[in-house]
Lab assay of single mutants.
Amino acid sequence: QVALSRTQVCGILREELFQGDAFHQSDTHIFIIMGASGDLAKKKIYPTIWWLFRDGLLPENTFIVGYARSRLTVADIRKQSEPFFKATPEEKLKLEDFFARNSYVAGQYDDAASYQRLNSHMNALHLGSQANRLFYLALPPTVYEAVTKNIHESCMSQIGWNRIIVEKPFGRDLQSSDRLSNHISSLFREDQIYRIDHYLGKEMVQNLMVLRFANRIFGPIWNRDNIACVILTFKEPFGTEGRGGYFDEFGIIRDVMQNHLLQMLCLVAMEKPASTNSDDVRDEKVKVLKCISEVQANNVVLGQYVGNPDGEGEATKGYLDDPTVPRGSTTATFAAVVLYVENERWDGVPFILRCGKALNERKAEVRLQFHDVAGDIFHQQCKRNELVIRVQPNEAVYTKMMTKKPGMFFNPEESELDLTYGNRYKNVKLPDAYERLILDVFCGSQMHFVRSDELREAWRIFTPLLHQIELEKPKPIPYIYGSRGPTEADELMKRVGFQYEGTYKWVNPHKL
């Protein structure tokens, strides 16, 4: 086992960053958080920038500027975001240094004079007029057009580079997404736009490419001749908990499936790229999406959770019991969808996408189930092999396979070949997804960000279904809070070829 401390991990990262040409360590950078008073800024962006600063992973002359409508001070920003920093008493001095680099400007999102004030403020910072500028839009999409237009007109660096990070949702359907994309691309070049999907920053999602293309053993079996089906799962054990009003506007397909799960599907299904260059990788992902037809209604199961009468606390409440959810809402909190990649490698292999709230566990994984062994000599005792990439929690890679049961006879039983990170790298604290992705933006690497043509294809696949749901308002199937979801989803999976045995229990190697 390799035991690495946080300091050692960050030392390795620093070495990698400083050796590259793309990370300008000594240049002045300004990180501007648009929507600095909001939840995302408070819980994710400010803490992430602090962790990067604490670990010495930001360029040395980096300033952080918050911008929002609320009249706040840096002290206010500190008060609301610091509880999420997880700072230790030993880091007190470092924390003071961090907040000394912070400033805040209040202004409207659609007022040109406010942006001119913001620009004057940035120019007044040390070497601010020639600094590289990175704008993070932690804002609702309704203000994107006004904000990007004003940034472009008043706040661009004339000497350094300018980059803009856009948070999902990128529209509600193909038409609104196209409108937003066309607007942003009329102001910024594609190499300046970073559409963030934080799932692409997760260690195991990034590991998929290495697993596939750096190991000879997987190449020959990664196709329709050997793989019976692919299941991509995202499960949350909690409901909307008072935030249903926002969720109800989008629903589970827009929230998770059309982005996170579809991105994971691309990494499983794509061909080997010409290189690890950002556009070479994204070219292959677009090719996969172009091979997927629009979702067919007979390959869809929609569910909505109801309270568990035997549960406790939140578990007793259904989705419609959330006071922020519109009365009688038919918005799905669970969806199972089957897609097919219609190309030579994957023809006929079902890709089953499942996601839901208020389920029995927290889990995100990719599961490849292989065909049955031909010419069975073990009297149907063999179960199908599976390769599982567990994204969260407890990152893991393992192969479910058959071995001989101890004893006199040739009785096979299920076991696993474990390729888990935790076994080799004991207690290594890896940077989280937002840390990686923000560092990628500083480096100018777009590999783990969504390109406009990729986004367009993703919406093309799901828009007809979303429009049909909005028009017909089908009643989702009720499922109990804390269950596996509607049984109809299991029946759909069985119908397209997935075999669920229920006889195997994964042993978490992190707890051995």
Results as ranks from 00 to 15, higher is better:
Leu492Met: 15
Met447Ser: 03
Val373Cys: 09
Asp322Lys: 00
Tyr398Asn: 02
Tyr421Leu: 11
Val388Arg: 05
Leu465His: 08
Gly311Phe: 09
Tyr500Pro: 01
Arg390Asn: 14
Leu439Ser: 10
Asp490Asn: 13
Ala297Val: 12
Glu395Asp: 15
Tyr479Met: 00
Asp280Gln: 11
Asp372Tyr: 06
Ala274Thr: 13
Gln296Leu: 14
Leu368Trp: 04
Gln258Ser: 07
Arg390Lys: 10
Arg424Ala: 05
Leu387Cys: 05
Asp255Trp: 01
Ile469Phe: 13
Glu361Tyr: 04
Ser278Pro: 12
Met408Tyr: 15
Tyr398Asp: 03
Val286His: 08
Glu361Thr: 08
Gly485Ile: 00
Ile438Tyr: 06
Arg384Met: 04
Asp376Pro: 10
Pro431Val: 10
Gly328Asp: 15
Val349Pro: 03
Phe449Ser: 02
Val288Trp: 01
Cys291Pro: 04
Asp347Ile: 07
Lys287Gln: 09
Lys383Arg: 11
Ala358Thr: 02
Ala274Lys: 15
Ala315Asp: 12
Asn343Tyr: 01
Phe351Asp: 05
Lys317Gln: 15
Val366Asn: 01
Glu395Ile: 05
Lys290Tyr: 07
Asp418Tyr: 01
Pro412Leu: 09
Val286Pro: 00
Phe351Gln: 00
Asp372Gln: 10
Lys404Gly: 02
Tyr340Ala: 09
Gly307Gln: 12
Arg354Leu: 00
Met402Ala: 11
Ala315Pro: 12
Gly502Glu: 13
Ile480Thr: 15
Gly485Phe: 04
Asn427Ser: 09
Tyr398Pro: 01
Gln369Thr: 06
Tyr305Ile: 00
Phe370Asp: 03
Trp459Arg: 04
Ala358Cys: 07
Gly328Arg: 11
Leu471Lys: 15
Tyr319Met: 00
Ala396His: 04
Val300Asn: 08
Gln380His: 15
Pro464Lys: 09
Asp453Gly: 00
Tyr504Asn: 05
Lys317Trp: 08
Arg424Leu: 00
His371Val: 08
His379Arg: 10
Leu302Gly: 03
Thr399Met: 11
Pro476His: 00
Val441Ser: 14
Gln392Pro: 01
Asn343Cys: 11
Pro350Gln: 02
Val388Tyr: 02
Pro464Ile: 07
Gly407Trp: 06
Ser329Trp: 00
Pro412Trp: 07
Thr420Val: 07
Gly444Phe: 01
Leu267Trp: 02
Leu289Asp: 02
Asn385Met: 01
Gln380Trp: 09
Pro323Lys: 14
Asn385Ile: 03
Pro476Thr: 11
Val306Gly: 10
Thr316His: 12
Met447Val: 12
Pro406Gly: 06
Met493Lys: 10
Ser293His: 12
Tyr305Ala: 05
Thr487Leu: 14
Gly328Trp: 13
Asn259Ala: 02
Phe334Tyr: 11
Glu488Arg: 09
Leu430Phe: 09
Val256Trp: 01
Glu342Thr: 11
Glu470Thr: 14
Asp432Cys: 10
Asn277Gly: 13
Leu419Cys: 13
Asn423His: 12
Glu454Asn: 03
Glu342Val: 12
Asn385Cys: 05
Thr330Arg: 13
Val391Ser: 03
Asp279Arg: 13
Trp346Phe: 07
Ile389Asn: 03
Gly311Thr: 10
Lys426Glu: 09
Gly497Cys: 07
Tyr421Ile: 11
Asn308Met: 10
Leu437Asp: 04
Arg354Lys: 11
Phe370Pro: 02
Phe351Cys: 04
Glu271Asn: 07
Gln468Thr: 11
Leu466Tyr: 04
Gln468Phe: 12
Tyr504Phe: 05
Tyr319Cys: 02
Phe378Asn: 05
Leu353Pro: 03
Glu472His: 13
Val337Ile: 15
Leu439His: 12
Leu387Ile: 06
Leu465Tyr: 10
Asp432Arg: 10
Asp432Glu: 11
Cys355His: 01
Val325Gln: 04
Tyr340Lys: 12
Ser329Met: 00
Gly311Gln: 11
Val281Ile: 12
Asp280Glu: 13
Leu353Ser: 02
Pro431Tyr: 10
Leu430Trp: 08
Leu430Glu: 05
Glu488Trp: 05
Phe442Arg: 05
Phe410Pro: 12
Leu359Ile: 05
Val256His: 00
Lys494Val: 11
Arg362Met: 05
Tyr398Gly: 00
Gln263Asp: 01
Leu265Asp: 02
Tyr434Ile: 02
Val268Gln: 03
Ala332Ser: 11
Pro474Thr: 14
Gly307Lys: 14
Gln468Ile: 10
Glu294Gly: 12
Val295Gln: 11
Leu368Tyr: 05
Val286Phe: 08
Lys475Met: 14
Glu454Met: 02
Thr333Ile: 03
Val288Gly: 05
Arg345Met: 10
Arg451Val: 00
Leu261Ser: 03
Lys405Ala: 14
Thr403Leu: 11
Val338Lys: 13
Met270Tyr: 03
Ala396Tyr: 05
Ser452Arg: 11
Ile477Cys: 11
Asp310Arg: 12
Leu320Gly: 10
Arg390Glu: 07
Gln380Glu: 14
Lys357Ser: 02
Asp490Ala: 07
Gly348Val: 01
Thr276Ser: 10
Gly497Tyr: 06
Met270Leu: 09
Asn259Thr: 04
Ala269Gly: 13
Gln263Arg: 00
Lys473Phe: 10
Lys363Glu: 07
Leu368Met: 11
Met402Phe: 10
Glu344Pro: 10
Pro323Asp: 13
Lys383Gln: 15
Gln304Ala: 06
Tyr500Lys: 06
Pro476Asp: 00
Ser329Lys: 04
Pro412Ser: 11
Pro326Trp: 06
Gly313Lys: 10
His260Pro: 02
Glu416Gln: 04
Leu387Trp: 04
Met402His: 09
Pro350Asp: 00
Ala335Phe: 04
Lys290Met: 06
Pro309Gln: 13
His371Gln: 11
Leu353Tyr: 02
Glu501Tyr: 11
Leu320Ile: 09
Phe409Gly: 14
Val349Glu: 00
Tyr481Met: 10
Leu359Arg: 01
Val325Gly: 04
Arg424Lys: 14
Pro326Ser: 06
Val496Cys: 10
Ile292Gly: 05
Gly307Ser: 13
Glu457Trp: 09
Ser278Asp: 06
Tyr481Gly: 06
Val397His: 00
Lys287Tyr: 06
Ile469Lys: 06
Phe449Ile: 04
Lys505Val: 14
Lys429Gly: 15
Arg484Thr: 01
Ala269Glu: 03
Val338Glu: 12
Glu365Lys: 02
Met408Pro: 06
Pro323Met: 15
Leu465Thr: 09
Met408Gly: 07
Gln369Cys: 06
Glu491Leu: 10
Glu457Ser: 09
Ser415Glu: 03
Asp440Val: 00
Ala332Pro: 13
Leu417Cys: 05
Leu353Val: 08
Leu302Gln: 10
Leu267Asp: 00
Thr316Asp: 08
Met264Glu: 00
His467Glu: 08
Leu471Gln: 14
Trp346Glu: 03
Thr420Leu: 02
